[in-house]
Write a protein that binds this DNA or RNA. Structure first.
Lengths: 193, 193
DNA sequence: CGCGACGTTGATTTGCCTCAACGATTGTGG
DNA sequence: CCACAATCGTTGAGGCAAATCAACGTCGCG
């Protein structure tokens, strides 16, 4: 069952007893998502934490000029949510879209709060996860300030080799903050070496 | 006393009983920092969470070309730490430097863990804080992808008006990811309007 | 006083974008 | 299963935002 995946994920961080597993099972829901289907669109409130059981998503913003900017990709065993909208309960400015046919486990805010209230270990679990993500994001920002597009591309290849087969170059370009055309030129230059 | 500031800070998020206040008082230390003095230098392990009681710090990286890139400024009632190095206990790549004469409260890792273990509310407190910081950082990254330098500068003015009097333009330029020369041109252009 | 940080300005360069065009590939509806 | 559309990758020409390098005046500070 899909929920097993989630339980295994938590158990990597903390121990769960039978009661907690029961609560988990009864308080999450499983959704199957088609390619190009949205978990969240601009203007909607983000009402769930989404845990990716299988497949892959991108979370991105569309700027006033109509261009997409990828904030992150989320594959198996990762969480994807617009934390800002989830907290403030204001409309999101982001999209979360399936890149592949996917399965996710969703937790509603009230249920997440239930876990926070009754089992503080979940606070810790999500604190640790987001601290790691925060460090990643800091490094990414530093890199966009201090490195060329080519360096960022190479570092992307290095950091996310498993994503390469699953993503068109267009999406990678958007993630590292350049145009597809320019990425193409970078790749050409690299292959010349 | 300085510790009062920290207690007030926590009380904005959670309630503290007498015992917890006692533990806090006995497990933190207070340091006075001169202008241009470092809380952390590249190559050192980051061993403390630092809470700014008074004054102001910048956390930045020096890239291979020798240029500084400001990750953040931390003033009164904010935390400043290289979370990555703090967790992994590997040498940091960052500097934390006082911009003004400052006072900080430091918590060592073992003491922070003590609070996490014995009073889970601290997990929640720091989870919430970092979730907010994470959202901020995401927006900043999106902005560097989708906005011009002038827009980022205006948005900085908008978001951190209280920092303006305390920072030279050089530091702002580094924060928004441009050179001081170019910021000067932007400001000239803006004043022309 | 003198030195180093700061702000400014000019001339030049460059990394990356824009727009446009084209073939190859993928996917989709009839 | 084919035909057509949409997405994708590539290439060229030209343009622009921002960096670089250099010079100079000001100010605060030790």
């Amino acid at each position: 069952m899909e929920i097993e995946t989630l339980i295994m994920h938590f158990k990597a961080y903390l121990s769960l007893n039978e009661e907690e597993i029961q609560e988990l099972s009864s308080r999450v829901s499983i959704r199957t998502i088609k390619r190009r289907q949205f978990l969240l669109s601009e203007g909607e409130k983000c009402k769930h934490y989404n845990f990716v059981v299988s497949g892959c998503f991108k979370m991105y913003k569309i700027d006033p000029a109509g261009k997409e900017h990828n904030l992150l990709f989320a594959c198996e065993n990762e969480w994807v949510t617009d934390i800002g909208s989830f907290h403030t309960e204001k409309p999101s400015e982001l999209y979360i879209e399936a890149i592949e046919p996917s399965t996710v486990i969703q937790i509603k805010k009230e249920d997440l709060l239930f876990f926070y209230m009754n089992y503080p270990k979940f606070d810790r679990n999500f604190r640790v996860i987001i601290e790691d993500k925060f460090v990643e994001l800091q490094n990414r920002l530093l890199q966009t300030f201090s490195s060329t597009a080519e360096e960022r591309y190479l570092s992307f290849l290095d950091q996310y080799p498993h994503l390469l087969q699953r993503l068109p170059n267009t999406q990678i370009a958007s993630y590292i903050g350049i145009t597809p055309e320019f990425l193409s030129r970078i790749r050409k230059e690299l292959s010349r070496k």
